[in-house]
């Protein structure tokens, strides 16, 4: 077979897969809307304000509720907001569990 045919075929297969990904996303979204709706209902019922992504500190667990002077206030999940933060080691007892 011609190499260009192989090339176009591989591009076509990949493109079809990409379209498949889009289709999957659209389809899955319809299905998962229900689950998301349930989660939203839970949020409403428990009056939650934040995502449970980072549980290590107050200002990372509830970035929207943190004090004004907490680190990371303007960009709560930034790598380090205060320059000193990058100089301080991990508090003892937290790491290396």
């Amino acid at each position: 077979m011609r190499k260009s045919t192989l090339f176009f075929m591989s591009l076509a297969v990949q493109s079809v897969l990409l379209i498949g990904a889009f289709t999957h996303a659209a389809y899955q979204h319809g299905r998962d809307a229900f689950i998301l709706g349930e989660t939203a209902a839970l949020v409403k019922r428990l009056e939650l304000t934040d995502l449970c992504l980072f549980t290590e500190a107050r200002y990372t667990r509830h970035p929207t509720q943190a004090d004004l002077h907490s680190p990371f206030q303007d960009h709560p999940l930034s790598f380090e907001h205060f320059p000193s933060g990058s100089l301080l080691a991990l508090p003892k007892g937290i790491g290396g569990r």
Partner: peptide, 23 residues
């Protein structure tokens, strides 16, 4: 996207009391 959908259920206003710059 998920956050913005799910957090639609969050309270409209939360009122915190501040004292000496702390919650």
């Amino acid at each position: 996207r998920e956050a913005s959908f799910v957090l639609q259920g969050a309270p409209e206003i939360v009122v915190q009391r501040m004292s000496a710059g702390r919650h």
